[in-house]
Amino acid sequence: MNVPHDLKYTKTHEWVRLDGDTATVGITDYAQSELGDIVYVELPTPGRAVREGDSFGSVESVKTVSDVYAPVSGEVVDVNGALGAQSELLNTDPYGKGYLVKIRLSDPAAVSALLDSAAYAALLA
């Protein structure tokens, strides 16, 4: 499984990339491989406030639905519109073009509480 070193992770298989006060959020390579072909993604509208641990959307394969949970609290400032037509980006490029949302953090320090790549890799082992 691909677990990039420069990202932070959750136990529920989301990843976070911090850029200033904005966190890009997606699901991990492991999560996409467990789900299989992803056929639909439900995302919040920009502007929505999310709290850490809240479900903010869902990811569907043919026979399963998984909620995705906000790794951090803040405001959704961007959603990945490309996923509407190309949900397969979640399978082919989960850490890049397959990101889900960008969240402006209410507390950027909160990111440090997330798992680092070693801890997440250990979780999968």
Partner: peptide, 12 residues
């Protein structure tokens, strides 16, 4: 569109 249905999505 099976994920709408009760056997997969249950209470949702």
């Amino acid at each position: 569109l099976r994920t709408r249905e009760q056997d997969i999505r249950r209470e949702k």
